[in-house]
């Protein structure tokens, strides 16, 4: 089996993430204890989601400038993979919150914001479903995709800085500086982010090829 280099890189990075994520030494912190390992699985989901949704928006913009079916397919498939990452992020986050905050859903601003973010993209899927004409569907959902992403910016980057939250790294900065200082965590965390994001790109790549082939098949059939 011949794979291009970045696919091998994905495999290696993810194997490294899973093995080192489960076995490596982590700082002993009160309450968090071993759940700190969720940093390697939960946080990269959000990084991956944002990056892949960004890809989706970029291809929506590209579609509006140059209406090729391929651009529309990439925008659609990456939006779907972004949603998948978002759902996984919420699930891993809820599981983690169960052990550290005591409840799956404790009405935290971050949890609510991520749920709203997902609602926006579910709405995108519904919108796509309600058109018959291919070109109209592609163009109007591209418009909504860009519009929704712009509306997502205050939700993700402004509101969390204005409200208090239980989420780690809060109080002015929604990052994770207090953990990030530990080089042992960093050594696994950065590869994890790259690995999971590349996995997302891989899925988008495969789905796009499949859809393009399907289109070609139906055109010739």
């Amino acid at each position: 089996m011949k794979l291009s280099w970045w696919k091998w890189l994905t495999i290696v990075l993810l194997l490294y993430t899973v093995i080192m994520g489960m076995l490596s030494e982590v700082p002993r912190l009160a309450i968090l204890n071993e759940t700190i390992r969720n940093l390697y699985f939960h946080v990269p989901m959000w990084f991956g989601m944002i990056l892949i949704l960004l890809v989706s928006v970029v291809y929506s913009i590209k579609y509006l400038r140059n209406p090729l079916t391929r651009n529309d397919i990439i925008a659609y498939e990456s939006a779907k993979v972004g949603i998948l990452f978002g759902v996984l992020g919420i699930i891993t986050g809820m599981e983690w919150a169960r052990f550290t905050w005591g409840e799956f859903w404790s009405n935290d601003p971050k949890q609510n914001a991520s749920a709203i973010g997902l609602l926006i993209y579910f709405a995108y899927l519904i919108l796509r479903g309600s058109f018959q004409d291919h070109q109209q569907r592609a163009r109007i959902s591209a418009v909504y995709n860009i519009f929704a992403f712009a509306a997502l910016i205050p939700l993700l980057f402004i509101l969390p800085r204005m409200t208090d939250s239980l989420h780690p790294g809060n109080g002015g900065n929604p990052g994770f500086n207090s953990y990030d200082l530990d080089s042992r965590l960093r050594a696994v965390f950065y590869p994890a982010v790259i690995g999971w994001t590349l996995l997302g790109v891989w899925v988008v790549h495969l789905r796009t090829r499949l859809e393009v082939l399907k289109q070609r098949f139906y055109e010739n059939a």
Partner: peptide, 13 residues
């Protein structure tokens, strides 16, 4: 339906 579905999440912030 679409009007509600599309607008609510955008307007929440």
């Amino acid at each position: 339906t679409l009007m509600a579905v599309l607008s609510f999440p955008v307007m929440v912030p």
